[in-house]
Amino acid sequence: MKKIIIILLLAVIGYFLADIFFEIPFGEDSMVVSKEYLDKSPNDLHVANTVTSIVVNFRGFDTLGEVTVLFLASTAIGSILFRRRKVHTKLNPQRNAPHASRIVQISAKILFPLIVLLGAYVFIHGHLTPGGGFQGGVIIATGYLLLLVTYRKFSVSHSSLTWIEAIAGVTFAGIGVLGLILGKDFLENFLPVGTINNLFSGGIIGIIYVAVGFKVASELTGILDTMLSIKVDSEENEQN
């Protein structure tokens, strides 16, 4: 009964939404502010990838928020799943799990540097090609994930993760504040912008994307390590 009501409700909502969606013409130029971006990104900022210049510069504040969201997610997962530091280290992830096949392990060994290199390429070239700090960070974290799932004794040093995370985060926010100190706006570019389509172009955008890359990589690695090191069955007795 409940399902029928929900289906009817959704049908009505779907009808209205469809009515509205199909009223918006598909594939037609309706840009207003974006025209400015498409004009300013190559001409003022000398950044080839307009999406990057929007993400890091024009709407850089959003990205600061986005990085914070990931930071919060890692903090939240730590706080939800683990109570004490001791418990955390004691519960070694895959103690009872069988090893991956030898071949998979070797291939992980070989692939890991390549994946990290790919991630580094993606976030260093964020302003020239698709991708950027976030994607590169995810790729690097995936490289660590590969090691985490294939080697059951592999574990990431949380202390160094904390350091990388903190330094990268401070670089991002600090560059913003540095702009304030230099008498410009928060996150405003204060470096020479270079020539378009060169690696060293776009001023602070490259630096910020590298920082975002490191931060995302360390945060996601932390999250994955935390989630993979949960003790499988029953839990320690907990009260308020």
Partner: peptide, 8 residues
């Protein structure tokens, strides 16, 4: 690049 990332 997308294809490259997908391969990995």
């Amino acid at each position: 690049d997308v294809s490259l990332v997908y391969a990995v």
